[in-house]
Design a protein around this nucleic acid. Sequence first.
DNA 1: GATGTACTGGTACGCTCGTACTAGTACATC
DNA 2: GATGTACTAGTACGAGCGTACCAGTACATC
Lengths: 195, 195
Amino acid sequence: MDVGAGSAPIERSRRNPEGRRRAIVEAAAALIVEDGLTDLTHRRVAARAGVSLSATTYYFSSLEELSEEALRLLADRIDTELAAVAETLAAHGGDPAVLAGILHGYLLEPMRVQADTALYLAATQRPALRPLALRWFDGLVEVLSNHVDAGTATALAVYADGVTVHAMLHDEILDLAAITRAVTALMRPDDGSRR
Amino acid sequence: MDVGAGSAPIERSRRNPEGRRRAIVEAAAALIVEDGLTDLTHRRVAARAGVSLSATTYYFSSLEELSEEALRLLADRIDTELAAVAETLAAHGGDPAVLAGILHGYLLEPMRVQADTALYLAATQRPALRPLALRWFDGLVEVLSNHVDAGTATALAVYADGVTVHAMLHDEILDLAAITRAVTALMRPDDGSRR
DNA sequence: GATGTACTGGTACGCTCGTACTAGTACATC
DNA sequence: GATGTACTAGTACGAGCGTACCAGTACATC
C-alpha cells in the first residue's frame, strides 16, 4: 500500500486529512509560542492554518485536546534539541566553556527561547502540563549528569532556567563571558581546603 | 430606617469609597496570584471583594487599569521584601550561607513565590508590564552589589530566578544544602592561579 | 428639612468564545 | 454509474465577557 505522496509539495487542499490535521496542530503550536496558551481559540487556529472553523473541531474533540497536542509538538522539538546538546557536550568532554557556548547560542535564537518558555507558562497555568514542561529541565539534568555529579547538574539546569527567564524579560541577553564565568564556577569542584 | 451595621469590623459596607477601592485592588491581586492575569474578570473581582459589579467599573475605567494597579500592589510588596533581604544581608556581611538561607526561606512560602511569579507571567504576556516585573530582578542585583561585584550579583540573581521557576514547576523545592553549594560557588572568586 | 452629589446596585448591549448541527461534496468500493 | 462514507463549509446557540447605563440612596451642606 504505497502512500505515494507524489511530487506535490504538501497537497493540503483537498482530501488529505493527515496533512490537514498536522497543519492545524502546527498552527496551534505557532500561536501558542507567539501569543500564549490563553489566546488560543478555534477560530484563530483555523485562520492561521487556512482551514475552516469546523476542521479544528472535527479533528480534535475539544480545544484542550488540540492545545495539548500542540504543546506535545513543542516538547518533542525540545527532545531533539537536547539530543544535540548531549552530542556537542560529549564531543568536548563536558568543558564548561562549551556548555556556556551552547547556552549562549540558545539565547541567540529568540524563537526557541520563546517556544520553551511557552511550555513553562502553560504548565504554570495548567498543572496537568507540568510533566511536559519538565522534559526540558529533567532532560538537561540527565544530559549534564554524564559529565558532572547530580547536584552540579541540577544547579546548572537551574541556572539555565534563570538565564532563559532573563532573556524573556530583558532586551539584551547575558553575554558569553558572564555565562561562562557562572557555568565555570558552578562546575568547579568544591575545594575542600577550608576545614 | 437606620441601617445599623452596628459592630461591623471594618465598616466597608456603606460610604467608604477608599476602603472599597482598596478591597477591590486587593481582591484583584489575590486572584492574579491564584489564577493568573488571564482569568481576571470584573465579575470575579467583584465576587471576591464582596462588592457589586458596578463598583469595579466605577473606580477603574477599565479592566486593564484595575489589573495594573493590582500588579503594582504586588510589586510594592516585593520592594518591602527586598528591603528585608538587604537588611539581613548587611547584618551578616554577605555570607553565602546567609544568602542561601534567605533564598531557601523564600521558597518555603509558596504564596510569595506564586505572587512574584505572577508578575513575571504577566510581564511576558503584556510587555508594558516588564518594568514592574524587573523590580525584583534589578532590585536583587542592586542589593547583592553591596557585597559582591556586579557580575557576580547578576549571576546570583539569575540563579535565584531559576530557583523560583524550579519551585513553581516541582512539588519539592531545592534543599538548603544544594542552594548553599551553588550560591557559594557563584560567590567564590575566580582563582586566577590557572593562566 | 431640602437639595446636590457621591456612590451603589441591577440590568442591558454587543461581542467572542467553544461547541453542535446540518447540509453538501468527492472519493473508494462495488 | 450507484452508493456509502469520510470529510468540508457554513451557520447557530448558549455562555461569559467588558462596558455602559439608569434608577435609586445616603450623606454633606445649607
